[in-house]
Design a protein around this nucleic acid. Structure first.
Lengths: 120, 120
DNA sequence: TTGACGTATTCCCATATGGGCATATGATGG
DNA sequence: CCATCATATGCCCATATGGGAATACGTCAA
């Protein structure tokens, strides 16, 4: 199997930096495809493709406005991600402690080694 | 260009479900590769490969213990993700309102259409 | 209808994935 | 040194990516 499709879930969809930029931009309100492409410095087809992905995972919503299509943010799909990552909040600090331990162990191990000079 | 490497950042690394499972499991403490593989029902090589990715983005840490290698969580890399996604927190609810508006507009548009029966 | 504008889709390519499998590398105990 | 256990790598494959370019599709105005 290959890597999971970008459209398989929000996790995959937001793994792409440009798509994250799109979402950030859309916090300011709806934008047309051309506006997005221009503001983010990408080609119109690229914008459309990224928007398709975001649409398929439900992170954006389209609204027809004449010949334009206005894309708007639908952030609900980000909530599960926020919660999942939040499940590690307690470990952001604890990890520091463990790292300290780890480093201490390393230093100790070094000291117990013969005073060899092949230090790199 | 192809899709960005899974090792390019934490966003890409955690896009893979199995890697998320590994991280979750590691909240319970350090595990050896074999333990991880067994508990998550994946082959040892697969576990090693996933761990390599997580290691390269700094989400896990290795510690040698005899012939085993104990992998431990280093959740600090998840914090930026939490913050980025958290930047959308306000929109999880607001989006509902906008959706309401949207649906209202749709209904209104329907009513203004001639009573055509090609409903589909 | 035709033309112009705004979007979406298609085709091509280089790249790297995740998975299965075999095997290399590493460390340990006899 | 050798056999064994624990991990990491290498190779093969199918798949789909993101990007560029061209083009199809849709809508509006004249």
């Amino acid at each position: 199997m290959a890597r999971a499709a970008t459209t398989s879930d929000a996790f995959n969809a937001i793994a792409e930096p440009q798509r994250r930029e799109i979402l950030m931009l859309l916090r300011g309100g709806e934008r047309s495809v051309t506006e997005l492409a221009r503001d983010l410095g990408m080609s119109q087809p690229q914008a459309s493709k990224h928007l398709r992905v975001l649409r398929e995972v439900g992170l954006v919503r389209v609204r027809e406005a004449g010949k334009q299509r206005l894309y708007g943010l639908d952030a609900r799909g980000l909530r599960p991600i926020h919660e999942w990552v939040g499940g590690f909040e307690r470990f952001w600090n604890e990890t520091f402690d463990r790292l300290d331990e780890y480093v201490r162990d390393l230093k100790q191990a070094r000291q117990e080694e013969p005073p060899d000079d092949d230090d790199q």
